[in-house]
Amino acid sequence: MLELRLVQGSLLKKVLEAIRELVTDANFDCSATGFSLQAMDSSHVALVALLLRSEGFEHYRCDRNLSMGMNLNNVSKMLRCAGNNDIITVKADDGSDTVTFMFESPNQDKIADFEMKLMDIDSEHLGIPDAEYQAIVRMPSSEFARICKDLSSIGDTVIISVTKEGVKFSTAGDIGTANIVCRQNKTVDKPEEATIIEMQEPVSLTFALRYMNSFTKATPLSETVTISLSSDLPVVVEYKIAEMGYIRFYLAPKIEE
């Protein structure tokens, strides 16, 4: 038996919107720790890891570990029927081939049940060890989204370089080139507007902008984004989900031919 009640149901709606462009089908794993998902895009270039910790739910009951295969577009269709202020409860019985999403309006005057068919998904689970990164950049998520969008109108790839001067996002295309440098800036009114660069050593990596743009669909989940870079690892683009966990996107770099 599984029953997860999330008062801030809009979080779940935002999570689905953040990942459904990247991943079509995925297994949602429920355990005592929380509600999680790990999935790669169809070309195995990017990976998304989601964790919503059990403590973040108003009610969390998960009698045994359960993996539920879902088509994310179908989940999204269901969750779009929930109001932004609705309380969402996810329910499933052991061995059942369906999951139920229950939506309650804030004043309890409307209650809706949406039952969705589960599917068998044969997915690979990758072990991602903790790593020391050469550079970690924290910046406003809206700024990062803007940069990715702007650069993708010029080129297909972005070179992200971190030096003592700051973090530079560069691209080149048929019509020309573009460079955007963000300097460390801690002297802002609100901490979420700061750009903070922790650099062990300079690093420069190239990535496909298409994926970066897809990651920025998670912008509504968090005011800040953390970009962790090392020359021998995929970049990690992390959006913290307040009080609950995170959504992390891993993207393999491009290398010179």
Binding site: H44, E124, L126, A252, E257
Partner: peptide, 14 residues
Amino acid sequence: TGVQLSITEFYRSE
């Protein structure tokens, strides 16, 4: 421009 690496070149199946 460049060769796109795969995530599975960095992380192994559990």
